[in-house]
Design a protein around this nucleic acid. Sequence first.
DNA 1: ATGAAAGCGCTAACAG
DNA 2: CTGTTAGCGCTTTCAT
Lengths: 324, 324
Amino acid sequence: MSNITAIAKRAKVSRTTVSRVLNNHPYVNTEKREAVLKVIEELNYVPNLNAINLSRGRTNVFGVIVPKIGHPFFSNLIEGIGKACNKHNYSLLVHQSNNDPKTELEFFNKLKYKMIDGLILGSSVSPTGVIDELSHFGKIVSCEYSDSSKVAKVFVNHESGIKMAVDHLKDQGHQEIGLCIGNPKSGVGITRKKSFFNLQKEYRLSWRDDWYFDKRYTIEDGAEVAKTIFGQPSRPTAMVVGNDHVATGMIYEAKKQGVKIPEELAIIGFDNQPISEVVELTSINQPIIEIGETAANLLHSIIQNQTVPFINTIELELIKRKST
Amino acid sequence: MSNITAIAKRAKVSRTTVSRVLNNHPYVNTEKREAVLKVIEELNYVPNLNAINLSRGRTNVFGVIVPKIGHPFFSNLIEGIGKACNKHNYSLLVHQSNNDPKTELEFFNKLKYKMIDGLILGSSVSPTGVIDELSHFGKIVSCEYSDSSKVAKVFVNHESGIKMAVDHLKDQGHQEIGLCIGNPKSGVGITRKKSFFNLQKEYRLSWRDDWYFDKRYTIEDGAEVAKTIFGQPSRPTAMVVGNDHVATGMIYEAKKQGVKIPEELAIIGFDNQPISEVVELTSINQPIIEIGETAANLLHSIIQNQTVPFINTIELELIKRKST
DNA sequence: ATGAAAGCGCTAACAG
DNA sequence: CTGTTAGCGCTTTCAT
C-alpha cells in the first residue's frame, strides 16, 4: 500500500509535487512529472479517497432518500439523479427509509457527518423542523412539496395534473366524475384531493360521496373499486384514478362484467406506466427521470454557488388512449 | 465546527477519552464520560466520517453497479441490497453504467481507492481479467454468472427456469413448443437457449426453425412475434417467452385476432412482473429482492471473514395463471 | 482508567 | 516551478 510519501521519496521530489501531478496542476516541470508518473506506475500506487475527502472537506457524493427503491416512481427518479451524477462526476448514496422517521434521521447524519455533500429528498416523512435544522449542514433539494423554506424544490405540479385530467373528461362531456386516490394524507394525496374538489365546484359538476375512494394502490384494489361502483344505483360516468395499476384493475373488472370502457365508464390514470399502454389507458404522464435529473443538476448548481431558481415545477402531459 | 480536540480541552480530558466515549468503550470513568457528553451537547459536536473512515481504513459502504436503475429487475435487486445494507448498518453507493465499460472502470476505482468496502456486480460488461484484478482490492459479489473465480456469486438458476417452463408445458400435453428470448448473446440468453434446446432433444419435441425468435424486448415486439406465428402454416401449440412484456404483447395480438389462449396457443413468460397478473399470464418468478438481499448478506459475511458458500443459487417458482 | 504520541494519506497556503 | 509546513479529525497502540 504505497502512499504519496513513498512516491515522493522514490521520485526524489516533495509530496506536494506528487500531489500536483496527481491533480493535474500546471506548473510542474515535465521531467519531474514524468519521474513521478513512472514511480506511480512502478509502485502500483492508488490514491485513498478518504484521505482526499478529509483533506478537501468534501466527498463528491450526493445522497438520496426514498421510501422504497423498487417502487417504479422512485427507481426512475434515482435513475435520473444517477444520470446527472455521472455527468457531474458525483457518486450517489441511496438510502431507503420505508417511511420510517428513525431510519431517515440516520441517513440525515450522513450529511451532518460530511459523508455526502448534498441531499436529495425523494420523499420524506420528517417534520419541517428537522429538515430546517438539517439544512445548516448542507444543501438539500426536495422532489416533493415541502413546507421547509430551506430546501430547493423540483416537483410536478399535481394541481395541474388533476386539472388536466378533469378538463379532459369535461371536454368529452362528462359531468359526473369520481375520484380514486392512494394515501389521502400524503402531500400528493392532499393536493390532488383539494384540486379535484376545487375544480368540481368551479365547474359545477355533479357529486355523490360514494364516488370517492382512497387508500387504493394495487390492481386488486382497482378491481374492488370497480365492483363497488358497478354495484351502486347511480354511478359516475368517469373516474380520475391516481394510479395506473388501480385504473388497470378497474378496466379488468369492467371487461369481466361487460361494462364498456369508455362508453359506460371513462377512466383516466396517472403516471403512464408501461401497463397503461397494454390496457390502453389514458394517463397523465410525469417525466420522472427528468425530475431526478433536474434535482441533481439543481443540487450541483447550488453547491457551486450558482444562482438558480429555488422552486422548479415540471409540467405533466396527457397521454390519450382508448379509456377516455 | 467543533472537533474532538475542542471537546477534550473543554471537558479537561484527553482526546483519547473523548474518542472512547464516542465509541462506547468500556473503562471510562462515569464522571468523565458525563463531562464529555455534556460538552458534546454544548458544542453541538458532530463527528466527521471522513476522518473516521481514513483512520479506520474502511467506510462501511457497499457499492453496486447496474446498467440502468430504472429497470425493474435492477431496481428490485437494489431494493434487496438496500434492505440488507440497512440491517448491517452499511450505506449503499449506486452506480449506473449503461453497460459502458469505461463507466464501469470508473466505478471500480471506488473500490480501489477505498471509498467502498465491497462491491456488488448487478451486471457487468467487463472482461474476467478486469474483475480478477479488481478483486485484489476488495471483496466482490456478482449477481449474475461470471467466469471469474475470484468473485462470490448469487444468481438464479436459469437452466432450471427453462426446465420448469418446458416441463409445465409438456405436462399439459404440448409437443410443439417455440422459444422467444431477448439478447441471445447475454449470459442469460445463452443459458436459456442452450437449456431449451437440450430439453427439446431430450424430450424429443417437434421443432421448426421458425418457432424461434430473439432480440425481442417490448410489448410491440411481442405483438409482432404473434403476428408472425399466426401467419405461419404450422404454428407451435405453446411458446416459452423470456420476458413478460413480450408475452403480454403476444396475448394482446392473439385477442385481437381471436386466437384463443391457451387453447390455440399456450404462453409462458418470465419474471412475473405486475403486468402478468393483469393479462393472466403464467410466468416464472425470480425472487429478485431476495437475490439482492442474499448478495449483500454474502458480501457482509465475506468481509467479516466468515466461511460462507461461495456460489449461491436462488430457486425460481412457477406462477400458474390462465395463459397455459 | 487515562493520556501521550504516532499515525491514517492527502491538500494547500506560503515562501522562495 | 518547487518544497516546507501545517493542517484535515479521528483511532489506536503503549505505557502508566
